[in-house]
Measured scan of single mutants.
Amino acid sequence: SGVNQQQLQQLMDMGFTREHAMEALLNTSTMEQATEYLLTHP
């Protein structure tokens, strides 16, 4: 699906929903950016 499943699982383990985590990974290129994205786009 174009996203790193390991990163997706890590974000879900942090408490984010699958949909939200996927959106973040699709819009960013690193785990750090994805986390930042999730925190700034709740």
Rank of each mutant, 00 (worst) to 15 (best):
3 V>T: 08
10 Q>R: 08
41 H>V: 07
20 H>Y: 09
41 H>W: 13
3 V>L: 09
2 G>P: 12
32 E>V: 05
6 Q>T: 11
14 M>Q: 05
21 A>E: 00
36 E>C: 15
41 H>N: 07
20 H>R: 14
33 Q>N: 04
1 S>M: 13
27 N>A: 10
20 H>E: 08
30 T>P: 00
36 E>Q: 08
18 R>T: 06
32 E>S: 05
9 Q>C: 14
21 A>D: 00
12 M>Q: 07
7 Q>T: 06
20 H>Q: 09
12 M>Y: 03
42 P>W: 15
7 Q>W: 15
5 Q>P: 14
11 L>Q: 00
15 G>I: 00
18 R>E: 08
40 T>R: 06
39 L>N: 15
16 F>C: 03
24 A>S: 03
21 A>F: 01
28 T>V: 03
14 M>H: 05
4 N>V: 09
21 A>H: 00
42 P>D: 14
9 Q>G: 06
3 V>S: 06
20 H>C: 14
34 A>N: 01
19 E>K: 10
26 L>S: 08
36 E>N: 06
31 M>F: 15
6 Q>L: 11
26 L>E: 10
30 T>N: 10
41 H>K: 05
39 L>R: 11
36 E>G: 03
31 M>G: 01
25 L>G: 00
12 M>G: 01
16 F>K: 01
22 M>I: 14
32 E>Q: 09
30 T>M: 01
37 Y>K: 12
40 T>D: 13
19 E>L: 10
42 P>G: 15
8 L>P: 00
7 Q>N: 14
19 E>P: 10
8 L>I: 07
25 L>R: 01
32 E>M: 05
4 N>R: 09
11 L>A: 01
38 L>W: 05
33 Q>D: 12
1 S>T: 12
28 T>A: 04
2 G>I: 13
34 A>Q: 01
38 L>C: 11
37 Y>Q: 12
5 Q>M: 14
40 T>A: 14
4 N>D: 12
37 Y>A: 09
23 E>W: 14
17 T>I: 11
41 H>D: 12
41 H>I: 10
5 Q>K: 13
12 M>N: 02
4 N>E: 07
9 Q>R: 13
